[in-house]
Design a protein around this nucleic acid. Structure first.
Ligand SMILES: [Zn+2]
Ligand SMILES: [Zn+2]
Ligand SMILES: [Zn+2]
Ligand SMILES: [Zn+2]
Lengths: 142, 142
DNA sequence: GTTGACCTTAGAGTCAACTCTAAGCTTATA
DNA sequence: TATAAGCTTAGAGTTGACTCTAAGGTCAAC
């Protein structure tokens, strides 16, 4: 049985975050001391570590919530449900990567074009490019 | 002289966003009608398009603010200041890309390991991997 | 028996960049 | 002239994931 600070040390989550996750039903403390202190048993600890692992991979708290409900009742859920969540996350990640690569590409081109020196920016090709409407892709609303 | 909705149409920013940018000194309406309507002259329009171009590249509003102050007084600023901002943004983008690539990698591995079929999730290797603490890299606080 | 570290709660604050609302003018069209 | 479309403002709400605060109770050590 761990106290919250011990669970925090064990998982690398802060005690604040653990309480926050509890509010969102991600982590549970099966027991409380008379004074109300949270106590985590082995099952709670495994659950917390599952949450931590999922968060590290980049799953949203909503995703984690779904993964947890699969985990607690595996016979009522299929592998497909799990891959759906995972694939959806991968799609998101892929999309963000390509947006960022587009930015990366533009930024690299801009950097190459500019002397980067101590001269006045009157001739700066980065500023010029922005004035000319340097656009690789319209990102619409962020 | 354009009205706000015309500037919105021209730049692809919403009128709301244009007013929001004005609050943050990114966009200006040099004139107002008697009734208080904003009117944008050529210089305002060019400035707005500069802002739009910078935003499309991914610069933060704070970055754009700095780029604008360089733009309006180029002789007081150097190319180096411009490349500093640009390089810093590129560094940020590169870091985000590598975080995302790490997630991408893990997600792909997980997806390959799971059958994705309609079977009960009792044997699901994705769930198993998360239970085993599948971690590629500790992301600390998001 | 008193420090000081740790625990509790509800609820507020943070970040960035919007996004929307309400209430009330103004302008263009039919 | 009436209706609709468009403009104004201050200010509140949104998103996700925390992060922190205040005010107070508890516990181990010296
Ligand atoms: Zn230069
Ligand atoms: Zn330059
Ligand atoms: Zn399977
Ligand atoms: Zn599976």
């Amino acid at each position: 049985m761990l106290k919250i600070s011990e669970l925090a040390a064990k998982t690398g989550l802060s005690a604040h975050t653990i309480r926050f996750y509890e509010k969102h039903d991600l982590i549970r403390a099966s027991e409380r001391s008379e004074a109300g202190y949270r106590y985590y048993n082995d099952s709670d600890i495994r659950r917390a570590e599952f949450v931590k692992a999922a968060r590290n991979i980049g799953f949203s708290l909503e995703d984690i919530s779904q993964l947890l409900s699969i985990r607690v009742d595996k016979t009522s859920h299929s592998c497909q449900e799990v891959t759906d969540i995972t694939q959806h996350k991968l799609d998101e990640v892929n999309e963000k990567i390509s947006e960022l690569e587009s930015m990366q590409n533009t930024l690299q081109i801009l950097l190459k074009s500019c002397c980067g020196g101590p001269e006045k920016a009157t001739h700066c090709s980065i500023i010029e490019a922005l004035e000319a409407g340097a656009v690789v892709k319209d990102r619409g609303a962020a």
